[in-house]
Design a protein around this nucleic acid. Structure first.
Length: 880
DNA sequence: ATGATAGGTGGCGAGA
DNA sequence: TCTCGCCACCTAT
């Protein structure tokens, strides 16, 4: 099955077979026994004295591990080591956090030999000598061996293997051929990507990351149950590298497998954080005065969590500190005592450093899997770590914000990052092992709202009023006990709202499913890295079919590479016209790079927009729409890296003639079919499973929406799978399809097309009757759909009245049906009132005018009424 | 570093 | 003062 992470039928069944390995079973058993005994010693912090916990094993003696997050150090002595974070099951049936250290990762580099080898398995070397595979291999091996020694790589294996290459590098031949696969340990540095030799023209995979290699090779697609066949050792408390409850070491990556038994997906521990800060004017930095934490210890990730507010699941704590050398206001001690009567929910500290220590310790003790907060990645985490640095919080404390013990703080980027741009790499490094769920970023992805601040979101989504305290008001809060308690409550309320938002939007189950579908790391999906999702999907798929994938261009020095890449890969420059043109081209490109991201002219032409026949229409207008046009084109014409022949001069390629289905079309087919299947399952299932299916369907819908991203990634310059010719081919087909549809409707069906944009056309039916219009529409649709196999048009809407003003600007009264009843909705596209950069007044006035125009009243009445209202507005403005 | 291109609109400054 | 080109911003698909 394609996406093994998603289990459609009969997902929840078997519990893991509890404890003990078969005595005779595997040699792993004794090791695991010792693991277990060590773990009893090792799990120091979380278990109460006298309580001992041991891990449950599968019946074959392997250790089940629910994989959640992973991390690799990119620099330093630990690069090449992979850290997996997840959950293991304890004897009591509870779950504990676990870190698995995977050692001995091997680099994997492909050597592309010179000359053609596609002729009958013989290596045609420089067209002169024809050698056998074995002979050629030995010549090549000898040279590669020398080169490896030169690079200081002393320990390696070499194997000739058959692989295909179908991407955009002109220096690597397309199609299947024998290449030499080299593997060597990560402790040796990466080979230079441009290394060449007498017998080989290129290297691929030189800088592949250990983690990516691991996940692709082990076919791990997002959060899922894994089993560790052998666990080499288990560190006890002082020797642990992580803050997790348990820690194991895996010395052979191949001992990590996807679990074949389906087991219940464990709940996770979610901690919501909200900081209240004051601005230190002298240094222009935020200082923390209070931190609120809300913890839910059993959040479901396979279905929506509905009862998260149930007593016992939720705990809260707010830590406040004194402002400057002040003392806490009068009466605070009393409040303090009341709040802590039953449970510690309020904590007072005298310094910011003490507050931070307390908070980090709390997160550690909670054994948090997921940190949540509104704009947590853009604000709270950044402030936390900067303050930890400024207050000289010890590394064994601040590093508890993540799961890996650290001694040095990674470079944090400046605090003044753009609102909502996500966390910096340094912050993500610190939090490795705990997922970051930023409800601000997520709602921006999942919802369409005017504003994504907490206050409006709380209102529109949760129907709750949020009390806001402006940042300059915060110092005043310390003047009285009452106002200070209000500050505390505000912090807790905010933390709570953010968590509620997360549950309300089912962010965890949704993003988990998305990660499973695309094979992405959950943390990346939460960060909204859409391009990366597609990248992973393609990586998994192409690897499975034995294709060598395009190299990962490292971020560092990318700007330099940009121009270089342009020169190497650019088909524009490939024109043998003259060298001058080429140099100018690359110089222009360099300029574009230097001028930054703001200036980016389109690289190729996109969708067709028809000139609108402007005016007010009062007969029924039919809006016809091709369902996900670009993905369908890929399927319809079998467009793929593997099928389209790219021309050398950079012109738009021809449609493929190959009937062999390409990988992209197959992928889309699988996704579409999968969605259909889920839809069907939804009809026939009930109860809890239905909720799960619903999430699945939502996720699939999201992916379907993001199928567009597959096209996007083909046209996205920084994408690993950048293929301008393919993107161009797709859009050019799109234009042709739209045009031919227009021609069909106008010439053959003799109907008037008044507008069209990329994948849609509007037809003036000239009718007053709904039913007749509908009938006509279905006839048109039938005719259009007959022409295509996968492309499907649909009647998107019928407009009773419409005002068509410009390209991409129109208002219409849409007719809809619900329970057999007809009702009308106003749809407004592109006009001022749907834009955020127009004032409320102009929106209101516009709204009124349009409602008048579309009311269907006589022309004169409308004019009079609009005029009157405008006069009224004018008067009001003069007054104001 | 964080899918695409097409298109409308107001603001701004240069130049007539 | 007016026009024009450029830019930032936001939207449609």
């Amino acid at each position: 099955m394609l996406f093994s992470g998603v289990d459609l039928e009969g997902s929840v069944k078997e519990e893991p077979v509890v404890k003990k390995a078969n005595d005779s079973a595997r040699s792993a058993a004794p090791i695991l026994k010792s693991v277990r005994s060590k773990l009893n010693v090792g799990c120091d912090s979380n278990s109460k004295p006298g309580e001992s916990s041991s891990l449950l094993l599968n019946s074959d003696g392997s250790l089940p591990f629910y994989f959640i997050d992973a991390h690799e150090e990119l620099y330093g002595p630990n690069s090449g080591i992979i850290y997996l974070f997840g959950k293991v099951k304890e004897a009591g049936g509870t779950y504990g956090s676990c870190c698995a250290v995977v050692n001995n990762m091997q680099r994997c580099v492909y050597v592309i030999p010179n000359g053609s080898v596609r002729c009958k398995g013989k290596w045609d070397f420089k067209g002169r000598v024809s050698l056998t595979l074995q002979e050629m291999a030995s010549v090549l091996k000898k040279e590669v061996k020398e080169k490896l020694f030169e690079q200081g790589v002393l320990n390696f294996t070499m194997t000739p293997v058959k692989r295909s290459y179908v991407f955009e590098r002109p220096d690597i031949p397309m199609g299947e051929q024998y290449v030499l696969k080299i593997t060597y340990p990560f402790k040796y540095s990466a080979l230079p990507p441009d290394l060449k030799g007498e017998h080989f023209s290129a290297l691929l995979g030189t800088n592949c990351r250990a983690l990516e290699h691991f996940l692709i090779k082990r076919k791990i697609t997002g959060p899922s149950w894994l089993s560790f066949l052998k666990v080499a050792s288990c560190s006890s408390a002082p020797h642990k590298v992580s803050w997790c409850k348990f820690e194991v070491t895996v010395d052979d990556p191949k001992e990590v497998r996807i679990s074949k038994v389906s087991m219940q997906i464990p709940p996770v521990i979610v901690t919501s954080i909200n900081l209240k800060t004051v601005i230190n004017e002298k240094q222009n930095v935020n200082e923390i005065v209070s931190a609120s934490v809300i913890n839910c210890c059993k959040a479901k990730i396979d279905s929506p969590t509905s009862e998260w507010e149930k007593p016992g699941l939720l705990k809260h704590l707010t830590i406040v500190r004194k402002l400057e050398e002040d003392i806490f206001p009068m009466g605070f001690e009393k409040e303090f005592a009341i709040r802590n009567a039953k449970d510690i929910t309020l904590s007072q500290e005298s310094t910011e450093a003490a507050l931070l220590n307390r908070l980090f310790l709390k997160i550690y003790n909670l054994d948090t899997d997921i940190l949540v907060g509104h704009n947590i990645s853009g604000f709270d985490l950044d402030v936390l770590l900067h303050r930890a640095q400024a207050c000289q919080v010890k590394s064994h404390m601040w590093s508890k914000i993540g799961c890996l013990k650290r001694s040095a703080m990674p470079k944090l980027t400046k605090a003044d990052t753009i609102y909502g741009s996500g966390a910096s790499r340094g912050i993500m490094t610190c939090t490795a092992g705990r997922l970051i769920c930023d409800t601000y970023l997520c709602s921006r992805d999942l919802l369409k709202e005017v504003s994504y601040s907490l206050t409006p979101l709380a209102k529109t989504q949760l129907n709750k009023d949020r009390r806001e305290i402006a940042s300059h008001e915060i110092p005043k809060a310390f003047q009285s006990s009452r106002s200070l308690m209000e500050l505390v409550e505000c912090g807790e309320a905010d933390a709570r709202l953010s968590m509620e938002l997360m549950f309300h939007l089912s962010i965890l189950p949704l993003t988990r499913q998305l990660s499973n579908i695309s094979g992405n790391l959950w943390g990346k999906t939460l960060q909204g890295a859409r391009a990366q999702g597609v990248e992973n999907l393609l990586l998994h798929k192409f690897h499975a079919y034995k294709y060598i994938v395009p190299d990962n261009i490292p971020t560092r020095g990318k700007n330099l590479n940009f121009a270089k890449r342009r020169l190497i890969y650019s088909v524009d420059g490939g024109n043998v016209d003259n060298l001058n043109t080429r140099e100018i081209t690359s110089e222009n490109d360099l300029q574009q790079v230097n001028q930054g991201k703001r200036k980016k002219g389109p690289a190729y032409s996109g969708g067709l927009v028809l000139e609108p026949k402007k005016g007010l229409y009062d007969k029924y207008i039919l809006l016809l729409d091709f369902n996900s046009l670009y993905p369908s084109i890929i399927r319809e014409y079998n467009i793929c890296f593997t099928t389209v022949e790219r021309s050398a001069d950079g012109s738009v390629p021809q449609l493929p003639s190959s009937k062999m289905p390409g990988i992209l079309p197959e992928l889309l087919k699988a996704l579409v079919e999968r969605r259909e299947k889920v839809k069907e399952s939804i009809k026939t299932t009930s109860g809890l499973d239905l909720q799960q299916l619903d999430i699945l369907q939502q996720a699939l819908k999201l992916t379907a929406n993001r199928l567009f991203c597959i096209y996007g990634c083909l046209g996205y310059y920084n994408s690993r799978f950048y293929a301008k010719p393919l993107a161009e081919l797709i859009t050019s087909q799109g234009r042709e399809i739209l045009q031919s549809t227009v021609d069909l409707v106008q010439n053959d069906l003799k109907m008037e097309v008044i507008y069209g944009d990329t994948d849609s056309i509007m037809i003036n039916s000239g009718l007053d009757d709904v039913k007749k219009s509908k009938q006509i529409a279905s006839e048109v649709i039938k005719k259009v759909n007959k022409k295509y196999e996968y492309l499907v048009t649909d009647l998107d809407a019928m407009f009773k009245r419409m005002l068509l003003l410009k390209k991409k600007k129109y208002v219409a009264v849409k007719v809809q049906f619900k329970d057999g009843k007809q009702y009308e909705v106003v749809e407004c596209k592109g006009l001022e009132m749907v834009r955020r950069d127009w004032s409320l007044l102009s929106k209101e006035v516009g709204d009124f005018c349009l409602s008048q125009i579309l009311s269907g009243g006589s022309g004169e009445d409308v004019v009079v009424s609009i005029h009157n209202s405008l006069m009224k507005v004018q008067k009001e403005m003069r007054k104001g």
